[in-house]
Simulated scan of single mutants.
Amino acid sequence: MTDALGVDVGGVLIVPTDRSEDTELFHARYLERPEMPGAIDALARLARERFGPRMFVVSKCGEATEARTREWLFQHRFFDRTGITLDQVHFCRTREGKAPIAERLGLTHFVDDRLEVLSHLTTVPHRYLFQPSEAEIARFRTFLPAVHRVESWSELAEALTR
């Protein structure tokens, strides 16, 4: 099996504003939402050193936020800077909807800020919980042993390139 990486958007690629929201792109100034520190450089490194073209963005959102997400990715030159292409971006409407996408793409690694999402990704052997909220951990604590908790993109990149 060839390694393949999936990453979430809100709280992983985009700095969160409010952990109670599913996305960071509801606000009027959504294009100004900053990228998570180190995310772009880490993804470019991971493409060079491990995953090559087998990196994907998988996001749960509604139709309007899907359009805003695409716009944000273009505005921040995400595709040019990471090597990930638009056809490697996938959307679903429910948190559990990420699981069939991950299985279809053959993802071996996934990064999300929601333990609930990672609990559904049973076909993904290496799941990374990125800067989770304590409330999320409290609600889904039983799934914590199945994931690796990481607090930064530099920590994640080091773990994935060892």
Rank of each mutant, 00 (worst) to 15 (best):
R81M: 13
F78M: 10
V89M: 06
T65Q: 14
V15L: 08
R81G: 09
T69M: 04
S133E: 01
D113P: 05
D8F: 02
L43I: 07
P125C: 03
H148T: 15
E35D: 13
L13D: 02
L105K: 06
L105V: 05
I101N: 02
R93V: 13
V147C: 03
C61W: 01
R77P: 08
L129Y: 02
E116P: 01
E158Y: 00
R54S: 14
E24N: 07
P53A: 12
S20R: 15
L129N: 01
G83H: 10
R45D: 11
C92K: 05
A138L: 08
P37N: 02
V111D: 02
G11Y: 04
G97T: 07
D113E: 06
F74N: 11
F74G: 11
M55L: 10
E49F: 07
V124I: 01
L46G: 02
A138W: 00
F56K: 06
F26A: 12
G6P: 04
F26M: 12
H120D: 11
F79L: 11
L115I: 07
P16N: 06
S59C: 15
A146F: 06
D3A: 12
T108M: 03
A146Y: 11
V89W: 04
V111C: 03
D22I: 10
L160T: 02
E35T: 15
L73G: 01
L144T: 05
S20E: 11
F140V: 00
